[in-house]
Design a protein around this nucleic acid. Structure first.
Lengths: 227, 227
DNA sequence: TCAATGTGAGAGCACTGCTCTCGAATTGAA
DNA sequence: TTCAATTCGAGAGCAGTGCTCTCACATTGA
């Protein structure tokens, strides 16, 4: 029987995170522990019983955000016919964008400029790879089905070695260096597209954001699958 | 004869900006007016005679950074033979990356997640377009030379209208909607690639960053010029 | 029952951006 | 040259921040 104390602790921890998310969405990236404490009606010092520091709280939020984005990508990808590789890839891209548009400040937390003092803890690198892993699994299946033709590893050997190291991971095994490289290119472009849109870098230039993004996904899906 | 007071004012203004840049490079994005004042041996309140606020100082730095990056792109592009459109495009991309690697914190200021309270003033949108304008001029020349084949405007009409609005600008006039759209795609990818590298999003994955970037530029140059 | 532990509150430290006031220096015109 | 107007630096002060420490109280498990 989980002690009473443990339960209220878990609940309060969740409440703090919820308030933090709320404040993050309202105020932008500068999260204030004191403001959270005020909102919850407790002393700011009491927060430190639950999170060792502001960075600790941020890390917890980042972790959950990665998981949420990864799960969104996985769910979207799962609804597409398994042999429709372009559709799966595209669905994953759109899911990542949709999640990001729905959670802009959390996206900025994940993919915005890194906070000066803050170094991403080890614990975040796993969940951070989850969205990429979905894209990777599509490529893996496409290669296994013979839809992507295998090409020799790209030059220079140093880059090929990087790719080979990634291919050792079971998530990506079998993709082949050339296709994996194209996948990375697409991942970079996907991130650029979402960041541009979210950070308003195309405001007053591209107003048809949906169509612009969709076209970009079409182009990069073709690039990834057919070279 | 510019009064003595005006001259020392200009000098001090420059010194403040220099100290700010120094501190920005050393400490990361959280610029402290008080720390600048300390470094210059003056009272923090005196800084407000030169910049109305912290955001004002940041805006000044951002403006100069845009100009510096744009100039780097222009200079690099100018050294390539005029009829080597792929070379011009590629040189511009590499110049933007080189400048960014040399000025990482300033790059983060320009293209990182927007600071919550800070709204980019009108004065910055001109210089912000300067790097893009260089890429645009290459496309314009390539189309004029018949190297890029003209294609019908992309769907949907809403997006085509966005592109047509951009084409009204003399910098981009004559490119054509389809090629301009590909140019935007490349610009997005270029930004994504530099951000990924600078923000450490590919650390421990891609170590051959130069080769990775070069390959990406090659791919997107081909995409832009030949579809 | 009771000592060990977990928890909340408050005071306090060093820091931030920013405002205000008050002398002192520089200016340009009379 | 005189003198009012302007500019400027310094200091105090306000409200806010993350974080630490101490102290009283509540909850545990033996």
């Amino acid at each position: 029987m989980t002690g009473l104390r443990a339960r209220v602790r878990a609940e309060l921890t969740a409440e703090i995170k919820a308030a933090a998310r709320r404040q993050l969405a309202a105020e932008g990236a500068n999260l204030s522990l004191r403001a959270i404490a005020r909102e919850l009606g407790m002393a700011s010092s009491a927060l430190y019983r639950y999170f060792a520091s502001r960075d600790d709280l941020l890390t917890a939020l980042i972790l959950e955000a990665y998981e949420a984005m990864g799960e969104a990508a996985e769910r979207a990808e799962a609804t597409v016919a398994r042999d429709d590789y372009a559709g799966r890839f595209s669905a994953c891209c759109h899911a990542v964008r949709d999640w990001s548009l729905a959670h802009p400040t959390e996206y900025a937390l994940l993919y915005g400029s890194p906070v000066p003092g803050y170094a991403a803890p080890e614990a975040t690198i796993g969940p951070a790879n989850r969205p990429v892993a979905v894209l990777g699994s599509v490529l893996r299946d496409a290669v296994a089905a013979g839809v992507i033709e295998v090409a020799p590893p790209p030059d220079p050997p140093e880059l090929a070695a990087d790719l080979a190291r990634v291919l050792a991971d079971p998530h990506f095994a079998g993709i082949g260096e050339a296709a994996l490289l194209r996948g990375f290119h697409a991942w970079v472009q996907l991130y650029g597209a979402i960041s541009f849109e979210l950070f308003g870098r195309l405001d007053n230039v591209v107003t048809a954001q949906d169509a612009f993004f969709a076209g970009q996904v079409t182009a990069m899906t073709r690039y990834v699958l057919t070279g």
